[in-house]
Nucleic acid binder design. Structure first.
Length: 420
RNA sequence: GCGGGGGUCGCCUAGCCUGGUAGGGCGUGGGAUUGCUAAUCCCAUGUCCGUAAGGACCCGUGGGUUCAAAUCCCACUCCCCGCGCCA
């Protein structure tokens, strides 16, 4: 949700943003609803004012023992008129609210404008790509031979894009989580294991409407949705709160299983554990003062980079273009790790500054002094590790001639061995 | 799941029975005053519309009754206590 004042004062800025994102949005309707809405507020307020006055007159007349019947009948007609106006207002307000929830965020000036990922900009690369003196295998081949993943039975029991992790890969999964948790708490992020189901109000605060269809699972018969990432649960954690300015920034490390419908993904990454309905993730999430959010954004990015460096996985940092970026984000970097089996860099982490977009939807504000009006803070999120994708990269990059896997040094103490 | 008790403007609390402008205390910020870190007094401290003046809204949420609802009625929700069930 955007600041209504910015929208009213700079409609062209909004139109530019919508076209940069290649989004078809009924902006003229939105502006009309906004005008109607404010007009109706003024009219209902005036009507309520007369109603309040008459009510007072009735009360004082009754107190002094006079006859209030004329006033009461006047009140009846005012109440009726007010009811009609109020119904109108509620309708307009709802239409305005629905549209404003689907309007995407502003875009930072540093973001390249373009309609899709072809306009993304590679910022930097780290690490030497591994070279092998033998025929390499992809992660699917490797995990089948080593008995690390059972896809067939998962398909039988749950369907496509599910998996049973087995043997040493279960340990590797846990090792990544454990290492990530230690890594990030050393950097003073507060670890939080969140609810895996949250209600509609919380989810709407963190997510834009169409994502409900494409990524979010709904629990039947309950006002509950499975989180797509702990970001969703952490963003809403401080909803309706006014936070003391002195306690900012709040830096959290969310840990949770993540659930994704992957509805729009039809044929892509059909096999293996690269694109799945369920995985574990440690996520950085920061509530920041507006002035600090861009510095926090870079800091979070450097945290993931350092994490991948410790794992020894080559990666590149990509600045997403306006058309490729998520709609709640004003600027997003992806970290793409090298996947030797695919001979390609693939997304494993995503680092976004959402400005006050989520904070407005969730009413998360701060102030330094109680005599100041509270202001919206900024929210940022950045993956630290998403286990399945990182494991694909580890499996493919660290495979050995005999079809086994060398465990990255920093993970060996958690896995309990140096090879899988 | 059953029974009981609760939810009031940051926190605590009055008002609810008997409908008629939501009052007090604490905390926090600012100011005044007095030779001290203290005391006292004043102002501010929820949301929306508005440049402002001003006004409207706000008593867990949503309905209903009424000229009028924090107050009466119904449903839901969350918290606390007891019982039951349970990894």
């Amino acid at each position: 949700m955007l600041d209504p004042k910015i929208i009213r004062d700079n409609p062209d800025k909004i139109r530019d943003m919508l076209s940069a994102r290649s989004i078809d949005f009924p902006f003229d309707d939105f502006l009309r609803y906004d005008r109607e809405r404010r007009d109706l507020i003024v009219r209902t307020d005036e009507m309520r004012k007369t109603k309040n006055q008459i009510s007072l007159e009735i009360a004082s007349k009754k107190k002094s023992g006079g006859d209030a019947s004329a006033l009461i009948s006047k009140m009846q007609s005012v109440s009726q008129q007010l009811q009609v106006l109020e119904e109108d207002q509620v309708r307009t307000e709802e239409a305005y609210r629905r549209l404003s929830l689907t309007m995407p965020n502003l875009i930072h000036e540093s973001v390249p404008v373009g309609k899709d990922e072809t306009a993304n900009k590679i910022i930097r690369k780290w690490g030497d790509l591994p070279s092998f003196g033998f025929e390499i295998r992809d992660h699917i081949d490797l995990t089948q031979r080593l008995g690390l993943v059972d896809l067939e039975r998962a398909a039988k029991v749950s369907g496509a894009r599910f998996y049973y992790l087995k043997n040493q890969l279960v340990k590797l999964n846990q090792a990544l989580l454990q290492f990530a948790l230690e890594f990030i708490t050393e950097r003073k992020f507060v670890p939080v294991q969140t609810p895996y189901m949250i209600n509609r109000n919380a989810m709407e605060g963190a997510v834009i409407a169409e994502d409900f269809e494409d990524v979010i699972y709904k629990v039947e018969g309950e006002d509950l949705f499975l989180i797509g990432t702990s970001e969703h649960a952490i963003a809403s954690m401080h909803s309706d709160e006014i936070i003391a300015g002195g306690s900012l920034p709040l830096r959290y490390a969310g840990i949770s299983t993540c659930f994704r419908k992957e509805a729009g993904a039809h044929g892509r990454d059909q096999k293996g554990i690269f694109r799945v309905h369920q995985f574990e993730k440690v996520e950085q999430f920061v509530f920041s003062r507006p002035d600090d959010s861009w510095a926090e954004h870079e800091k979070m990015l450097s945290n993931v980079e350092e994490f991948y460096q410790k794992l020894g996985l080559p990666y590149r940092i990509v600045l997403l273009s306006s058309g490729d970026m998520g709609k709640v984000s004003a600027k997003t970097y992806d970290l793409e790790a090298w996947m030797a089996g695919q001979k390609n860099y693939r997304e494993v982490a995503s680092c976004s500054n959402c400005l006050d977009f989520q904070a407005r939807r969730l009413k998360i504000r701060f102030r330094d002094r109680t005599d100041e009006p509270p202001q919206y803070l900024h929210t940022l999120n950045c993956t630290l590790v998403a286990t399945t994708r990182t494991m694909v990269s580890i499996l493919e990059n660290f495979q050995t001639v005999d079809g086994h896997i060398s465990v990255p040094k920093v993970l060996q103490k958690y896995v309990g061995s140096s090879t899988i």
